[in-house]
Write a protein that binds this DNA or RNA. Structure first.
Length: 368
RNA sequence: GCGGCUAUGGUGAAAAGGUUAUCACAGGGGUUUGUGGUACCUCUGUUACGGGUUCGAUUCCCGUUAGCCGCC
């Protein structure tokens, strides 16, 4: 169930209810692809204030596998996380692992990157795996085409995604959960419109904007996200899949997107790039920032591995109250990266996730 | 003291009488968008010292110095 509590222009402030609890929207989902947010525990994620995690059907299908996951009683129990989980269907791996898979109308055959074993993923199997995982929000299996594709390829992928959407919708429900469709169509307005309308006709609990941030110019990403929202029902949650940088999220919220996930805070953390505030996040004029997406004035990315931090003892981020900023100097963080201590990944991930979760809190506050 | 071997970036190695001496690591800077779990791109930096042969030597020769090995 999705309830909008307040709206400012197109931006929405709402509540999304799932079997494992409710989330205040707009929200951000940290990514636990294989059942763990890299370097962090479930308890860490609670401490950070995450309300929902994202996990991945394809990766969990490889390990531990469908039957083991059933036997283990689902992912909530397995990883001891009692709040909601959203699962990606494996559609993104059609794109990201495109060198190792073959697409047919029935589904996609992957050569496992782990042991070369063949896995034939279909819409039905993806839904079965997501049921085994026990996720609260399940994504349709879709066909993501690269951002540099021709219109013919986009159209083919979009039409197939629509047919697969219907097949996912038709899988009988055995429990309470939300099921989302995914808009494709690349960077063509007519394809995006047909995709969105087709999905709405099938009928889902929420709608995702997919197939963006996959190699196309950033302006297109902004433009087609805004364009796509025009064809989505206002009373259902909208989910921008896979993005993005802080200023992107600010923009997408302004055009009415409610849900986000992105690997950037955690991956950048592992590579030593930390997001820091230029001002108190609760004083940011997000309406202004959304109109100025390329100005990027409210935060700075700091490379804590850089030489300039060798002797820096002042806090990394004066506006951050995370465990890392409260207890450790940039100089120490740099040392941890230089010596490849595992603690580097953990402390940096704690900070970057705190940044993203705080960004969402500040955005919600601005919409009250 | 005598004999032998070696001497190439910060480190470890490679190559060659002739454009700009190669590679890895380290170091500097950057990239990352529904995560193929330590990635990718890029830059900086070297022929121990002195003399000789040669049109040209970092390469061949002699000496100096240093290190290693053996002998007395």
């Amino acid at each position: 169930m999705f309830t909008i509590k307040n709206q400012k222009n197109n931006a929405r402030r709402g509540v999304l209810t799932t079997p494992h609890g409710e989330m205040q929207t707009p929200f951000f989902m940290p990514i636990a692809t294989k059942g763990a947010v890299k370097s962090l525990s479930s308890r860490d994620m609670e401490t950070l204030g995450a309300d929902i995690l994202l996990s991945n059907t394809y990766h969990l299908m490889l390990k531990p596998g469908l039957e083991p996951m059933k036997q283990l009683g689902g992912l909530h129990t397995f990883m001891n996380w009692q709040k909601p989980i959203l699962t990606d269907s494996g559609g993104y791996q059609v794109f990201s692992l495109s060198k190792m898979n073959k697409i047919t109308e029935d589904g996609v055959t992957f050569n496992s990157h782990l042991d070369g074993a063949r896995i034939h993923l279909t819409p039905e199997l993806s839904m079965e795996m997501q049921a085994a995982i026990g996720s609260d929000i399940r994504m349709q299996f879709d066909h993501v085409a690269a951002g540099t594709s021709t219109k013919e390829v986009y159209e083919d992928a979009m039409e197939r995604s629509l047919r697969w959407a219907k097949r996912c919708k038709d899988v009988p429900r055995t429990d309470e959960h939300l099921r989302f469709g995914i808009v494709q169509g690349g960077t063509y307005e007519d394809l995006r419109e047909r995709s969105a309308k087709g999905l709405v006709e099938i009928g889902f609990d929420g709608y995702a904007i997919g197939g963006l941030s996959v190699g196309e110019p950033k302006e297109d990403c902004y433009r087609f996200t805004e364009f796509t929202t025009r064809f989505l029902p206002t009373d259902k949650p909208r989910y921008f899949m896979g993005g993005g940088m802080p200023e992107e999220i600010v923009y997408y919220v302004s055009v009415g997107v409610d849900m986000f996930d992105c690997v950037l805070p955690t991956r950048n953390a592992r590579h030593g790039t930390l997001f820091t505030w230029n001002q108190d996040p609760f004083t940011i004029d997000f309406e202004k920032e959304a109109k100025n997406v390329f100005a990027q004035s409210f935060y700075t990315q700091k490379r804590v591995t850089n030489e300039q931090f060798q002797f820096t003892t002042e806090p990394l981020d004066a506006f951050c109250s995370c465990e890392t900023c409260q207890n450790y100097s940039p100089a120490y963080l740099r040392h941890l990266f230089a010596t490849q201590e595992l603690l580097a990944y953990r402390l940096a991930s704690i900070h970057n996730l705190t940044f993203y979760l705080t960004l969402m809190r500040a955005l919600r506050a601005s919409l009250e």
